[in-house]
Simulated assay, not measured.
Amino acid sequence: MDTQAGATGAIRVGTRGSALAMTQTTTVAERVADLASLPYELVRIRTEGDVLRGSLSQIGGTGVFVAALRDALLEERCDIAVHSLKDLPTLPAPGLTVASVPEREDVRDALCARDGLTLATLPDGARVGTGSPRRAAQLRAARPGLDVVDIRGNVDTRLGRVAGLVIGAPGDLDAVVLAAAGLIRLGRDDAITELIDPAVMLPAPGQGALAVECREAEDTPGTRAALAAYDHLPTRLAVTAERAVLLQLEAGCAAPIGALARLQGEELALEAVVCSLDGRSILRVTRSAPVTDAVAAARLGVELAEELLAAGAADIAPLSS
Rank of each mutant, 00 (worst) to 15 (best):
L111E: 01
V28D: 11
E30G: 13
R236W: 04
A297Q: 01
I151E: 10
A142K: 03
S288M: 05
P123W: 11
R127Y: 02
L319R: 07
L178H: 02
P102Y: 03
R284L: 03
R280P: 00
P144R: 08
R134T: 15
T26E: 14
D174K: 03
A99P: 09
H83W: 02
D293L: 08
S132L: 02
V273H: 06
G9C: 09
A314D: 15
R114G: 02
L260G: 07
S57W: 14
R236F: 06
Q4S: 14
P123K: 07
A204D: 14
A241V: 02
T193I: 11
G160W: 12
H232N: 13
A36S: 09
A5K: 14
A228Y: 07
R127N: 02
D278S: 05
T26F: 05
T97F: 06
Q264T: 09
A297I: 00
V32H: 03
P318K: 06
V273A: 12
L91H: 11
V295H: 13
R140M: 13
V64W: 09
A93L: 01
R161V: 01
L246E: 03
A209F: 09
R135S: 12
G153F: 05
E306W: 02
A137T: 00
G95N: 06
R70P: 00
S18Y: 09
